[in-house]
């Protein structure tokens, strides 16, 4: 070390992106995009201003919410949402197991892989409500269309995660089972399933939770559940009933989250 040379050495934190040109391009690009996006967003501030009293009205509606006025409809809607949740999660997971296995690159032959992957992509690309519009057209108004929608959406979610989990598994364990002369199904049962099972149970419970939350909006397009009631109360400006419904949804989601955490610990 050259201690004798007394120069001041400057130090600055090194930037996250080393290449200056790339750093500037990204920064300016982001700024440009933000300006453009904000510039092209039409906001009718008068309308917003007019609406604010309605906003406060809505907030005050929570104190207290009106459970009584539409109580029967709320109970009907919520229980329908719950049935839909249960049926669609079970059906969806049952279908997504073969699809997910087929979509795992390390165990499925190429044609099966591409076929299953495309099912997953289509299912994941469309938001539930878009799917619901079509299924309502096909199956008529009511919870059945909602169940089909949620099952289909579950396939995309669960199948993809299952496939990824299988792709991440320890190949040595599976190979050892194959070397014993196990058949394909035995191989899946002994070599693959034990490796992916714990995580998949957790994800199943998580999907149950998601399906309930989604079932609360399918009613807006006629897919059954509490959404129809909620939509009506918004349209009639019955904010106190809407507040009641929203609170019920929050309560159930909280309950589900709490109990699924408990259940997950029990399963493990």
């Amino acid at each position: 070390m050259s201690i004798s040379i007394q120069t001041t050495r400057h130090w600055k934190k090194r930037p996250l992106i080393q290449r200056a040109s790339l750093r500037w391009t990204l920064g300016l690009g982001a700024a440009f995009y933000l300006a453009l996006a904000l510039g092209t967003t039409d906001v009718n501030w008068n309308r917003v201003w007019e609406g604010l009293p309605r906003g406060t009205q809505f907030v005050t509606a929570f104190f207290p919410p009106d459970f009584a006025n539409r109580w029967d409809e709320i109970v009907d809607g919520i229980s329908e949402s719950l049935w839909m949740t249960v049926v669609s999660t079970v059906v969806g997971i049952a279908i997504s197991i073969p699809v997910g296995i087929g979509a795992a690159r390390n165990i499925a032959p190429a044609p099966v892989y591409y076929f299953c992957r495309s099912i997953l992509t289509v299912s994941r690309s469309f938001q539930e409500v878009i799917l619901a519009i079509f299924f309502v057209k096909l199956f008529g108004f009511g919870p059945f269309a909602g169940v089909v929608t949620l099952s289909f959406a579950t396939i995309g979610f669960y199948g993809k995660l299952l496939a990824e989990d299988i792709e991440d598994m320890d190949a040595a364990q599976a190979e050892a089972v194959r070397a014993t002369g196990a058949s394909w199904l035995q191989w899946i049962n002994f070599g693959v399933q034990p490796q992916v099972m714990p995580r998949m149970i957790g994800l199943g419970l998580y999907r149950l939770d998601i399906n309930f939350r989604e079932s609360a909006v399918l009613g807006i397009v006629g897919g059954g559940g509490i959404g129809a009631t909620l939509n009506t109360s918004f349209e009639r400006y019955e904010f106190d009933s809407a507040a009641a419904i929203v609170l019920v949804i929050i309560a159930i989601v909280m309950l589900a989250e709490y109990s699924s955490g408990y259940l997950r610990r029990w399963v493990q």
Partner: peptide, 11 residues
């Protein structure tokens, strides 16, 4: 067959 790193199905 006996494997390197055992290759038991751990769960």
């Amino acid at each position: 067959m006996i494997f390197q790193e055992y290759a038991l199905v751990e769960r």
